[in-house]
Deep mutational scan, measured.
Amino acid sequence: ETKSLTLVLHRDSGSLGFNIIGGRPSVDNHDGSSSEGIFVSKIVDSGPAAKEGGLQIHDRIIEVNGRDLSRATHDQAVEAFKTAKEPIVVQVLRR
């Protein structure tokens, strides 16, 4: 079962304390579909994302501050987090 969660993150020394993997390839599949998503791959101990109620590894990131990342490329997702103003509201899907 997958549930949708909304989390609020604040940077600590400029970092949110997690890494992402995935992202849509720069070239779409011929039918326009994509199974890619942006997923949390690593969480830094005691970083902002590790706090209670924070992110978990394998969370799929859907949205950052209202910006849809469900079909974003990896670079677009990285840029969305880099430029996001605080508080950073992150919507994820968690299995």
Rank of each mutant, 00 (worst) to 15 (best):
R60Q: 15
F18M: 04
S13D: 13
D12Y: 09
L93I: 15
I62L: 14
T73E: 04
V44K: 10
S4Q: 10
G54F: 06
E79D: 15
R94L: 00
D59P: 00
K42M: 08
G53C: 09
L93M: 12
S13A: 15
D75G: 10
N65A: 04
D45M: 07
I38Q: 01
K42W: 07
L55T: 00
F18A: 00
R67C: 11
S26M: 10
D59E: 02
I62P: 00
I20P: 00
V89K: 12
D75L: 11
H58C: 06
R95F: 06
I61E: 00
R24I: 11
G53H: 09
N65H: 01
R95Y: 07
P87I: 00
G47E: 06
P25G: 13
G32D: 11
S70I: 05
K51I: 09
R60M: 05
H74P: 15
K42F: 08
F18N: 00
R60T: 02
T6K: 15
I57F: 03
S26L: 10
K3L: 09
S26P: 12
S33W: 14
D28P: 09
P25E: 12
A72G: 05
I57N: 06
E86T: 06
A49N: 12
A72F: 04
R11V: 03
E52I: 10
L69F: 05
D75I: 07
L7F: 14
L55E: 01
T6M: 09
I88K: 00
K85L: 07
N65R: 00
G66D: 04
T2Y: 15
S4H: 11
G23Q: 08
K85W: 04
D12R: 15
L5K: 06
I62H: 02
R67G: 04
I61M: 01
G17T: 03
I62Q: 04
D12W: 05
F18W: 00
D68E: 04
I38R: 00
E63C: 11
K3M: 12
K85Y: 05
L5H: 07
R95P: 14
T83I: 10
G37L: 01
T73M: 03
D45S: 11
P25A: 11
D68P: 04
F39V: 05
D75Y: 07
P25Q: 10
H30V: 10
E1H: 14
A50E: 11
L9C: 06
V92L: 05
P87D: 02
I57Q: 07
E86C: 05
E36V: 08
I88R: 00
E52K: 11
I43C: 04
E1W: 05
E1V: 10
Q91D: 08
V27N: 12
E1D: 15
K51H: 09
G17V: 02
G23E: 09
E36L: 06
A72I: 03
T2C: 07
K3T: 11
H10D: 08
R60D: 00
S46Q: 10
S70R: 13
S70K: 08
L9V: 07
R11M: 04
E36Q: 09
S26F: 10
I20D: 01
R60H: 11
E86R: 04
V40I: 13
V89W: 04
D68F: 00
H74N: 04
H30T: 10
A84D: 02
G54A: 13
T83P: 03
L93K: 07
V89D: 03
A50N: 10
R94I: 02
G53T: 08
R60V: 03
L7T: 05
D31M: 10
I62V: 12
